[in-house]
Simulated assay, not measured.
Amino acid sequence: MRITGLLLCLVCVYTAGVSARQPAVPLETWAGRQQLPATRYELRWEKFPAGEPTPHDDRAFTGTGLVILDAAGGRTRVDQDERLRFKNRPGQLNRVRQSVRYDGQEQTCFFKMEPAANAAEEPAGVKVAVGVWGGSMHWPDEFAPLAWAHGLVVPSGGPQIGPFPTAWWPTSERFRPAGTDVIDGRPCAVLRDATAAEGVTATLHVDAADGAVLRTSRVRAGGSTQVVAVTYRDTPHGRLPAGWEVTNTRPGQPPAVEAKVTVSAARFDPPAADDFRVALRPGMYVERQGQTWSVGPEGVQVPLESSEGERPTLMARALAVVGPIGFLGLVMAACLVVGLLALRRRVRATS
Rank of each mutant, 00 (worst) to 15 (best):
S99G: 07
P270I: 11
A20I: 06
E122R: 14
R97W: 06
G104H: 03
R345L: 13
V261H: 00
R174Q: 15
P23Q: 04
W244Y: 06
D103G: 09
R348W: 02
W168T: 14
A124V: 09
A196M: 11
E308A: 14
V230Q: 01
E106D: 01
I3R: 15
Q35H: 11
V206P: 01
D58M: 05
M284L: 10
A149G: 04
Q107K: 02
D184C: 09
A266F: 01
T350L: 14
W148F: 15
P155M: 05
V78I: 13
W45Q: 05
T216V: 07
D210G: 04
R218T: 02
A189L: 02
R317W: 06
A318N: 05
A265C: 10
M113D: 05
P90R: 09
A266R: 08
Q105L: 12
G157C: 00
V230D: 01
G158M: 04
V126W: 02
H138R: 13
G323A: 13
T201P: 02
R220K: 13
Y14I: 12
Y285R: 13
V278P: 03
A31C: 06
R59P: 01
E121M: 11
A272I: 05
A259E: 10
A129N: 09
K47V: 09
E310D: 08
M315S: 14
P187K: 12
Y102E: 00
Q80D: 15
V154A: 00
P324G: 09
R344Y: 07
L304T: 11
Y102D: 03
V100K: 05
A120N: 12
V321I: 15
P23H: 00
T62E: 07
E173W: 02
G339H: 08
G290S: 10
R233T: 15
H150V: 08
W30C: 11
L10Y: 04
G283H: 13
S136F: 06
R250A: 12
E310H: 14
G323W: 09
R233L: 12
S264D: 11
Q35C: 04
D269W: 09
L319C: 04
K127L: 11
F61S: 08
A196H: 06
F48C: 10
S306Y: 02
D181A: 15
G252S: 11
Y14G: 03
G329P: 02
D274F: 00
G17T: 10
V322H: 06
A259I: 01
D234W: 03
T15K: 10
T350G: 01
Q289F: 08
T166C: 01
A272N: 15
A149L: 00
R75W: 05
C109E: 15
R348M: 07
A320C: 03
I3H: 09
R233Q: 14
G290H: 10
R89S: 14
A266H: 03
G151A: 14
V96G: 01
V18F: 06
F48E: 03
P90I: 12
L152R: 04
P159Q: 02
A320P: 03
A349H: 13
A229Q: 12
S224D: 14
A256G: 07
P241C: 08
Q253C: 04
V295Y: 09
M332P: 00
F86M: 13
W244A: 00
A144G: 05
R2D: 13
F48T: 10
V321P: 00
A60E: 04
P177R: 02
S224K: 08
T64H: 06
R281I: 04
D181S: 15
V347N: 01
P159A: 14
R288E: 15
E82M: 09
A20N: 04
K87W: 13
E28V: 05
W133Y: 15
